[in-house]
């Protein structure tokens, strides 16, 4: 199939999706999604811990602005996914480790260290987890400079300024993060 034919097939799909988006925004899997500064991360994670969340995983992206770490949290009794995004400079890593709040983060952080070379501040045991300790060369998921995309390209029409986590609104939102619209589609 040529590229043109492919476009004609997917175009009506996109229009359909755009139409439904106006009524109910398409569920992206995140009930709440914030950008936070590395400085605020520990406090934000502590608030999530107090609200009974568990850590699903820590994902990382290589982009033009540096690295983006995405922490996924969810809750057992009142499900709802919260994403915390932290931007990291390519050279100076100042993101703190959260292993003392969530011990499960230990391995996730080591995985990010493996694949992206991110040095989490205060991590007790930052050794290669999945890669060979003798691995030479750059971390495998680092992109070529030409392949990196910027925040605007990957997240069009999104506010990427960090939120103020001291705000009451943040605490209130994460406490009531379950969106019934997404949780009970029927």
């Amino acid at each position: 199939m040529s590229d043109q034919a492919e476009k004609s097939v997917t175009a009506p799909e996109k229009e359909e999706a755009a139409k439904t988006e106006e009524k109910v925004p398409l569920y992206t899997g995140y009930d709440l999604d914030y950008f936070v500064t590395p400085k605020d991360l520990i406090d934000a994670v502590r608030k999530l811990d107090q609200a009974g969340f568990f850590l699903e995983d820590i994902s990382c992206l290589d982009m033009k602005e540096g690295f983006q770490l995405v922490y996924h949290f969810d809750r057992f009794d009142q499900p709802g996914r919260v994403g915390l995004r932290v931007m990291q400079d390519r050279e100076n890593h100042d993101v703190p480790s959260i292993h003392h709040i969530y011990p499960g983060a230990d391995w996730h952080e080591r995985e990010c260290f493996d694949f992206f070379g991110i040095r989490f501040k205060g991590h007790p045991n930052l050794l290669p987890l999945l890669l060979d300790p003798d691995h030479q060369g750059p971390p495998p998921l680092i992109k070529d400079e030409s392949a990196r995309k910027s925040l605007e390209e990957l997240y069009p029409d999104r506010v990427t300024t960090p939120v103020n986590i001291e705000d009451e609104q943040f605490t209130r939102e994460i406490t009531n993060c379950s969106n019934p619209k997404y949780r009970n589609p029927s």
Binding site: M1, E6, K14, T28, Y30, R81, L154, Y155, P156
Partner: peptide
């Protein structure tokens, strides 16, 4: 046949 999703971020 050849999926080409738009730019975005999903879980």
């Amino acid at each position: 046949k050849r999926a080409k999703p738009p730019a975005g971020d999903v879980y």
